[in-house]
């Protein structure tokens, strides 16, 4: 019973889900690399991974859309969307590869709360669509 309750709480805490997937997509969750399928849930602190000739599209709870190109690794450091309590934050870390973002409701309500960092840059987002590409092995 305890096990069931724990599972339910965890499942309700998802921050987004995979909308489409071409090729193979993975998620690194609590240190474990596992394949993810269309409809699979994304949680805070997940690292999304695509491989060669693979793409993955994710929709977050605030309608922010994220599309990963091939050979990409992106960690969702923080995602909080609680407009009622004015608590919002989207922090992501792109390690390598390419990704397109289209900001959702969070950027409309709290435009200074969204930030994506790469090994060499920090990108503050003021409600828009943009693409980031990071070469591998950049430190």
């Amino acid at each position: 019973m305890v096990c069931c309750l724990t599972t339910t709480v965890f499942a309700e805490g998802f921050i987004g889900s995979v909308k489409t997937l071409t090729g193979k997509g993975y998620v690194v969750r609590k240190g474990d690399l596992q394949p993810i399928e269309v409809g699979g849930h994304i949680f805070q602190d997940d690292t999304l991974v695509t491989v060669r000739n693979s793409t993955m599209d994710v929709i977050f709870r605030d309608d922010t859309r994220l599309s990963l190109g091939p050979n990409t690794e992106l960690n969702i450091d923080e995602f909080i969307f609680d407009p009622l309590h004015d608590d919002m934050s989207f922090l992501a870390q792109m390690r390598t590869g390419s990704a397109t973002f289209l900001t959702g409701k969070m950027a409309q309500i709290a435009p200074d709360k969204m930030q994506v960092s790469t090994p060499l840059t920090t990108i503050g987002i003021r409600g828009t669509k943009f693409l980031i590409s990071v070469e591998p092995e950049v430190k």
Partner: peptide, 11 residues
């Protein structure tokens, strides 16, 4: 380039 950031128009 080591990285590129490109701004696009919303739908």
């Amino acid at each position: 380039p080591l990285a590129t950031v490109l701004l696009l128009a919303d739908p």
